[in-house]
Design a protein around this nucleic acid. Sequence first.
DNA 1: TTGTAAGCGTTATCAC
DNA 2: GTGATAACGCTTACAA
Lengths: 344, 344
Amino acid sequence: MSKSTINDVARLAGVSIKTVSRVVNRESGVRDATREKVEKAIAELNYWPNQSARDLAASRAHLICLVYDDPSAYKLPSSGYIIRLQEGVLRVCRSLGYELLIHPCNYRNDDVESELKFLIQRARPTGIVLAAPLSNIPKIVRAISATGTPLVRLSPGQKLSKEMVVATNDREFAAEMTCYLASLGHRRIGFITGHPRHKAVGHRFEGYKAGLKASGLTFSEELVAAGDNSFGSGEAAALKLLDRKSRPTAIFAANDDMAVGVLRVADRLGIRVPDELSIAGCDDITLAEQIHPALTTIRQPFAAMAEKATLMLVKGTEESEAPKGTVIVPGALKIRESTGPAPG
Amino acid sequence: MSKSTINDVARLAGVSIKTVSRVVNRESGVRDATREKVEKAIAELNYWPNQSARDLAASRAHLICLVYDDPSAYKLPSSGYIIRLQEGVLRVCRSLGYELLIHPCNYRNDDVESELKFLIQRARPTGIVLAAPLSNIPKIVRAISATGTPLVRLSPGQKLSKEMVVATNDREFAAEMTCYLASLGHRRIGFITGHPRHKAVGHRFEGYKAGLKASGLTFSEELVAAGDNSFGSGEAAALKLLDRKSRPTAIFAANDDMAVGVLRVADRLGIRVPDELSIAGCDDITLAEQIHPALTTIRQPFAAMAEKATLMLVKGTEESEAPKGTVIVPGALKIRESTGPAPG
DNA sequence: TTGTAAGCGTTATCAC
DNA sequence: GTGATAACGCTTACAA
């Protein structure tokens, strides 16, 4: 195992440590011949720079911190959300030589604020990526901002020009999905709303209405049922919508968990999907592709959003021109098997 | 934001930096009055030790690395597994002042080995927690071991007395579940096997056989169907088992994803659960508690295993008496709604 | 019980 | 282009 230092390399290559440092950090102004000598010595000694020493000397840590709502505190079925966020941050970290520190936290705890300050003081990360729904909780944002650590918020549910924000276009793609269903001939398109506290999810309802309008359909309260993002609430809502005389021929749920609930109810009631009923969701959870029929949904760009956020953080730090404002990473329709032409 | 150093504190408290260091590190041999003076200065200056400097000076990093199979490479429905592992490691890290670095990796890549070495060289973690199924892939284990970094393996599928291993008692609880089903009066208990490469999952099949024996039932190939841990394979296997003349009155699947598949097939075939068919799974994925009827299963102690593993790593490093051998963290039966008395 | 001084392995400054 | 040499903020012998 390598224990060699920059000094060993310098000695072997017959140069100063500064020159080795230059080569390692790809600085310009090193003669090719010198560079090669150094690189040879590095390879021979199997040298790797010591991260702690680098960070200390440069007074910066190569560290990104991802903060999100603690899933173990809720039992979210879609912990895939977090995995995908991690995935996105990791992609950038790996390519740019940063490490990822993860910090799930429960905003209901009274001491989240000091907990976050403690974390930041201790780890001194380059920056923080704050995931929804924490990103729209004022005391959390305030606690982090107070430390002066660069912060990027994910889907805070509002545009903010003076801060770094990455979001997706919930409203637009929900409208698009609605138009798609209308284009299949559906005229009675039901909607199941999501958790009332989740702002971005609320945008989808607005998108649904906009889509109806754009398709020349009229909005009706009768076609709407309330859910709370859970599988069970999707089942309950489906039961309500499908029990009616003139039931919808398509149901669009504000998230996949609920859409899967609808699918299950349809199955139980003997309603064939998509022949008699089209079902669409939103998020593209892993299960969406695995159930039968595979769920038509909207792919949420969680990983891409996290990737973009991390990039903003790193660039902002390295280039001293911190990018501000809201960046939109668009979602994408995933047409699969659960939607089809309207019956009749 | 604090930029004060140990020197500032020493100056303000009127002591040497060594004394400050002693207070910060809770070393003994500091007079109470002195300690108080220092603590007051620390509070006043809002001082926090610089982690990089500490690590450099002590030539150790307060860092645990969790390495697991990259979920984005497969589309595992139960990414909850990883979240729970992270949860366990994080618990220990937080209480002991370590940071958690996560590293999902794809063992199919040709360069995993150099990738891991790179990671270790760069981050120099205190130790590594290696999750299944990576923990039983020789080239992975070898690559890590070669660096000399302390390693704890999770569920490698075999007992190893000379290495640090944390596992659960798959065989025992699978037997227990089988006995439980037998005690409900079931005499034809079906089994769906898991992924052939996953050793620990294979143990469950053995446990099933042992449970039959202990209950005075005879094993029959007719009651066994092969699966591969996926939801779809569970559906297929269920179809096979339930299609037979004298079909089983209970089905025990080697994991929850498959058990949910069985549940779905039963629902589709109009077989009432648990009245006509009892279904049991293994893992206790989040979905298990949320579907209807809630799934009887075996709670796998993922978080507890990760916690134990991390503790071994830290203790082993700090106490210079590295604990060796296999530690077993037992699983637990979760009796819910999908199992009941045998019909008739 | 407390303090001094020598590193730890880098980066950064400024000569050459 | 290259190289001394001084930080960076802390731990750790070893003294006192």
